[in-house]
Design a binder for these strands. Structure first.
Lengths: 246, 246
DNA sequence: GCGCCGCCTTGATCCGGGTCAAGCCGGGCG
DNA sequence: CGCCCGGCTTGACCCGGATCAAGGCGGCGC
């Protein structure tokens, strides 16, 4: 990343910040970029680090948009309520992932975000991020890419896939996302209740239960309450093929 | 939009371009921006204008990404093929809309784009657009917003909505999008075959046919082949409520 | 004008998963 | 220890929409 340090604003010089799972850091990771530069830029961007207890809201639909949040620890659920008050789960955000990108458009959050377990996250001022992006071409293009990446993400929800296909894709998605952040891809916790999984996959909770049982009976997984082991990733992948397409 | 014209590159001085339905023009529209400035910036961005006959491909999955396309006339269908070769329709792009935003991430097109009728479109160099965006803060934020807007768009496909709800939302969406570009919101052509509508809505073609018939019988629409009139927008809106949420 | 072909419609049947209704099981608390 | 409560599982039944199978109909070529 080409950073002309002379052009960087000199604010935030004092603020020390190190956030190894922050989205920004991940944006820059694996590119052989000078770590000092990354840290410096990150210090400019990160507003604050905050914690939330299980069940607390990070933001609510309609809240004014000012910053993007990067999850450092815990799981965040985003959802909307329809006119009858029924919940609709939009997604789960794991450590290292970003929440709130869809708020840029309307300048206010179009959904609610809730901590499913104790959550640590840091907030980026989007205004400051944009200003920096204008100075650092590579940061700009990374932002564009990050936004573009999310456009195609809805594939898991859309499509007329069977319950098995949806569930396989969901478990694989979790596995891959944990792996990317350095966690085990074959053993992790389902940090969300079954009802949320069901809601997210557009299935009935009973169906989720039945599918998970079938996966266990077939030796694809080993599962005890929320403790999950993936025994046969290959089988999961072939099940999820129609959904994930690779 | 604050444009410091002194900072604009002086390329493209000779190229005359006027494209009243181009995405960029629409980005700037309704903001009281000096028309000359818009035209000037547009001239810098627009690479070329090209035409496609019905059935021709605009790009195919895997093609290298270089430019974003704005539809000036006609309808573009985007779709992917799964491993078994079965088509999956991702969306329809009407005049004034943009195709290819989801290619920024991977630098190659993740789907195919096909002209459903004779199509005119113009291509924007995304590289040049980014460069300009760095100079013009408002352009950058408009681009961010455009990308962000698309992230939430998949709602129509996702969700476990009934056939009636999906169809109502689809027709309303077309109506509103045509209206935004100055076409009639109550009478327009379904420029795509029923099979494509069905595929897009994740329904069987037979179901599409039956739902359209029911809408006609109920006096909600008047339809003859592909010529569609919306007689009762209110009823459509209340049907589509769960899908569109406003 | 006639016949073919593609797109669309209509009817009959079937099935995946939703819904309803109980039970299970583990964790927290008195 | 025993009770309660919430999250999860299991079973029985039902329904919306897919699937299968025929036609209808309009446009185009010969």
């Amino acid at each position: 990343m080409a950073v002309n340090s002379a052009r960087l604003p000199e604010a935030a010089a004092g603020r020390a910040h190190s956030c190894s799972t922050c989205a920004f850091t991940n944006l820059c990771r694996n590119d052989g970029i000078d770590e000092n530069v990354v840290a410096q830029v990150e210090a400019l961007l990160v507003d604050e680090t905050s914690q939330y207890a299980e069940g607390q809201h990070i933001f609510r639909e309609g809240d004014p948009f000012d910053s993007i949040a990067a999850v450092r620890g815990g799981t965040v659920k985003t959802y909307v309520l329809d006119r009858e008050g029924r919940e609709q789960v939009l997604g789960f955000h794991l450590p290292g992932e970003v929440v709130g990108l869809n708020a840029i458009h309307s300048q206010s959050f179009p959904c609610n975000a809730l901590a499913l377990e104790p959550v640590v996250l840091c907030r980026f001022s989007f205004r400051r991020m944009s200003e920096l992006a204008a100075l650092i071409p590579d940061l700009q293009s990374r932002l564009f890419r990050l936004l573009s990446e999310d456009i195609g993400k809805a594939a898991l929800l859309s499509g007329d896939f069977s319950a098995d296909e949806r569930m396989a894709a969901f478990l694989l998605s979790l596995s891959r996302r944990y792996a990317r952040r350095g966690f085990s891809p074959t053993r992790f916790n389902l940090t969300m209740p079954r009802t949320d999984i069901a809601n997210y996959l557009r299935l009935a909770p009973e169906t989720v239960s039945r599918v998970l049982r079938r996966f266990r009976d077939d030796g694809i997984t080993q599962i005890d309450r929320r403790d999950l082991r993936l025994l046969d990733i290959g089988r999961l992948e072939s099940l999820a093929l129609p959904v994930l397409r690779h």
